[in-house]
Amino acid sequence: MGTTRVTIVGGGILGLSLAHHLSSTGFAVTLLEKEPTWAAHQTGHNSGVIHAGPYYKPGSLKARMCLAGNRSMTAFAREHGIPYETVGKLIVATSESEIPRLDALAERATANGVTCRLISMEEAREYEPHLGGLKVLRVENTGIVDYRAVSAKFAELATANGANLVSGTRARGIRSSDQGVTVEHDLGQESSDLLINAAGLHSDTVARMAGIAPGVRIVPFRGEYYELAPQSQNLVRGLIYPVPDPEMPFLGVHLTRMIDGTVHAGPNAVLALAREGYRWSDISPRDVFGTVTFPGFLKLAAGNVRTGAQEVLRSFSKRRFARDLARLVPEITPADLVRSGAGVRAQAIGRDGKLIDDFSIHQTQNQIHILNAPSPAATSALEIARHIAQLVVSPRTR
C-alpha cells in the first residue's frame, strides 16, 4: 500500500498542526491556505492564552484536550525556544450572587483535573495587588504564548518533513469519489486520498462544497479589545477573569497580560457583519444574509436580545467597557484604555438555536471536517491533530 496523500484546507494553527503531525508520521501532505500568510485570522487575533480547562463539561473533547494541550503546547514552546510564561489565572467573584457559581466552577475544574484552589482576597492580592472582588479561584497552569510564532514553527517543521504548504490559493470546488478527493483551487487542483477541512471561519462552507450537509452554520462573533495605556499596565500582572454566567455564551471581558508585556482588555462579543469582519464597516451582504436566514441564528437571537444589545452598546462606549473591567480592577477608568485590535470567533450554531459547545469533528469515508473549534482550540492544537490522526488510521463513518 502506498503513502496516504492528505489535502488540508486551512492554514491556521489547526491546519498547520495537522500538517506538522501527519507529515512527521509518514503522510504525504499538501496544505492550501487562501491568505498569503499563515494564521491570518482566528489564530493571529486571539489573546495568546494557554488555557488550563476549568470551564468545560467533564469528559468532553474540550475538557480532555485542553488539559492535555496545556501540557503539550507548553512543552512544544519550551522545546523550540518560543517565548511563553506560566502566569496562572485569577477568576474573581465580584458579588455575593457570583460566589455559588465560583464554587461550582471550582468543583468542575477539579473534576477536569485542573490544578486550582479557592483563595482569600488577601492571598489573591499577593498575585494582583489592585484586584477587586470577594472571592477568587486561582488556576495555576494557565499560560501565555505567541500563537503566530507557534504556527510559524509548525509550518517550518512540516516543510522540513516534506509537506507542501501553499498559501495564496482559495479552494473553489471539491469532488469526492471512492478513489479519493480532488480540490480545485486558484493555482490548479490537488488530488489525494483524504481531505481535512480546517478552514475555521469558512469550515461549514468548505463542508458544503465537499457535498457534506454540516447541520450547523458558522456565525462570526467579533471580539473587540482595548489595551491598558503604558502608564496603567502596572495595574495587572497576569490574567484576571470574571466568573462566567452560564446563561451567556461567552466569558465576559477580562484582563490578559500578553507575552510582549502589554495588557489586553476584553473582548466583548458582537455579531460580525462578515466572516472576516474585524470592524463595523466590514460588511458582506452574502454573509449577513446567510446568518440571518439560518433558523438557528434567529432562535439564538430571540433568546439573547438583552445581552446582544448590551454587547453592542459596550462596543461603542469606552465608559461601559471600563466600568465592566473596574469590577475586576477598581482603579481602571476610561482614561486607562486605548483601543486595540479585534478578532472574529467562528462559532457553530445548530438549527435549534443552541451554540455547539464542544469541538465538533465530522468524518466520512475520505473526508474529515472540523466544524467547531473555538477556544481552547489553539491550546489544544497538538491534541486535535493527534486525535484526527487516529481517525485517519482507524477510519469510521460518523
Score class of each variant (00 low, 15 high):
I82S: 03
G12W: 07
F359M: 03
Q231R: 00
G266S: 11
Y241F: 11
M121H: 12
S151F: 06
G162N: 13
L16Y: 01
I332E: 00
Y56K: 11
I196S: 01
L102I: 10
D287E: 12
N234Y: 14
V150S: 03
L239M: 10
A342E: 03
P395T: 03
A274D: 04
N46F: 13
Q233Y: 12
V49N: 03
A109R: 09
R345V: 00
A77I: 05
R71S: 10
H185R: 04
T169P: 01
R323P: 03
A265N: 00
A39D: 05
V166F: 09
H387R: 08
S95V: 05
P374G: 06
W280P: 09
G53Q: 04
V114W: 03
A302K: 07
V292C: 06
L235I: 06
R339H: 13
I384F: 04
R222V: 01
E190K: 04
L239E: 03
V183Y: 00
R208H: 12
T182P: 03
Y278Q: 03
K299R: 15
I218H: 09
R339M: 11
T291V: 15
L105F: 06
H387I: 07
V145N: 01
N234A: 11
S177N: 13
K89H: 12
I388A: 01
T293V: 10
G223K: 06
L31M: 13
S281G: 07
L337D: 01
A28R: 06
A109Q: 09
H20W: 15
S176H: 11
N372A: 08
D178E: 15
V166M: 15
E33L: 06
T291I: 14
M1E: 15
S191D: 13
R314S: 09
L67C: 11
L239T: 05
G173F: 00
I349N: 07
Q390F: 07
I332K: 00
D178Y: 11
I50F: 12
L31K: 02
A346E: 01
P54H: 02
L187N: 06
G211Q: 04
A155D: 04
G341M: 02
G261E: 08
D186M: 01
Q347I: 02
S340A: 15
H202T: 06
G341N: 02
H80L: 08
A104F: 11
R345W: 02
V288Y: 08
L61R: 07
P376G: 00
A389H: 05
I174Y: 09
S167Y: 12
